[in-house]
C-alpha cells in the first residue's frame, strides 16, 4: 500500500490519532509516537482523552518498583489510574477464584498465577517509570493488552477472545462442561501448528509485504 499524498512511497506507519496511512515523508514523530502532520501533539492536543502522564522528571523507577509491590499503587504512581484499578481487580479476582469452589483441583496453578502477577506488577511499574523518565509518552493502557492490530496478519487475538467468550458462556449456561472439554487439549497444539504453518506459507508468498508491516507504528 502506498501513501495517499505521495503515491510513490510505501506506507510505513499510521497516525496514532486518526489512523491516516503515512510514508516516511508524511510521518511526524513526537515523544516516540507517530502522528500525521495534522495531529502533532504540539499543535492539537487531543482534548477529551489527554495523555494522563506528563513529562515527570521526578518519576523514579525504584520508587515505582517499591510502590508496585502494593497492587495497583505502582500504576497509580505512574499516573495510569485505569491500569491501577484493572491491576487491583485482576489481583482480587485471582485470589477469590483460588479460594472458590470453581477451580477445584487447580489451586496450585492459580497460586502460581497470583505469584506471577504479583511480581509482574512492580516490574511493569518500574519499566513504565523508566520510559516516562526518558520522556516517552506512556499510553494509559500500555502493556495491559499488547495486541496491536497488524494489517494482513491472521487475527489470532480477536478470534481467541471470541472463542474463549463462547466457551465460558456455554459453560455458564450449562450447555457444555469445560472440564469435559479439557481432555481434548491436544487440539490446541494442532491448532497452533496449523497457525504457524499458515504464517510461514503466507510469509513465503509475500516476502516484501511482511517486512513493511514490522515497521509498525505505536511503540
Amino acid at each position: 500500500m502506498n501513501c495517499p499524498i505521495h503515491p510513490d512511497s510505501p506506507v510505513v506507519a499510521y497516525c496514532r490519532t486518526c489512523g491516516q496511512p503515512l510514508c516516511t515523508e508524511c510521518r511526524r514523530i513526537a515523544a516516540g509516537t507517530v502522528y500525521c502532520q495534522q495531529h502533532l501533539p504540539a499543535i492539537v492536543p487531543p482534548s477529551p482523552s489527554p495523555p494522563p502522564s506528563t513529562f515527570a522528571a521526578g518519576s523514579s523507577p525504584g520508587l515505582a518498583f517499591l510502590l508496585g509491590l502494593i497492587p495497583g499503587v505502582g500504576a497509580v504512581y505512574n499516573g495510569q489510574y485505569a491500569k491501577g484499578i484493572v491491576h487491583v481487580v485482576i489481583f482480587g479476582l485471582l485470589i477469590s477464584l483460588t479460594t472458590s469452589e470453581a477451580v477445584r483441583g487447580f489451586e496450585p496453578l492459580f497460586g502460581m498465577l497470583i505469584a506471577i502477577f504479583y511480581i509482574y506488577m512492580p516490574f511493569e511499574a518500574y519499566h513504565t517509570a523508566r520510559r516516562r523518565r526518558l520522556g516517552e509518552v506512556v499510553d494509559e493502557f500500555s502493556s495491559i493488552l499488547p495486541l496491536r492490530s497488524h494489517a494482513g496478519r491472521f487475527p489470532a487475538g480477536p478470534i481467541l477472545l471470541i472463542a474463549l467468550g463462547l466457551l465460558f458462556l456455554l459453560h455458564n449456561l450449562e450447555l457444555l462442561r469445560i472440564e469435559r472439554l479439557l481432555r481434548y487439549w491436544p487440539v490446541l497444539l494442532i491448532g497452533l501448528g496449523v497457525y504457524m504453518l499458515y504464517c510461514r506459507l503466507s510469509g513465503y508468498r509475500k516476502p516484501g509485504a511482511k517486512s513493511e508491516e514490522h515497521q509498525d507504528v505505536n511503540p
Binding site: 500500500m1 502506498n2 510505501p10 506506507v11 496511512p21 495486541l147 492490530s149 494489517a151 494482513g152 487475527p155 487475538g157 480477536p158 478470534i159 481467541l160 477472545l161 471470541i162 472463542a163 474463549l164 467468550g165 463462547l166 466457551l167 465460558f168 458462556l169 455458564n172 509475500k206 509485504a209 513493511e212 508491516e213
Partner: peptide, 25 residues
Amino acid sequence: PLLLIVYGVLKLLERTAVSAADPGG
C-alpha cells in the same frame, strides 16, 4: 463472557477494515 465476545468481534472488524485498506497486505 459476552463482553469478551463483543470485544473480539470489534477487534476482528477493525482488523478486517485495516486489511481492506491495505491491498498490499
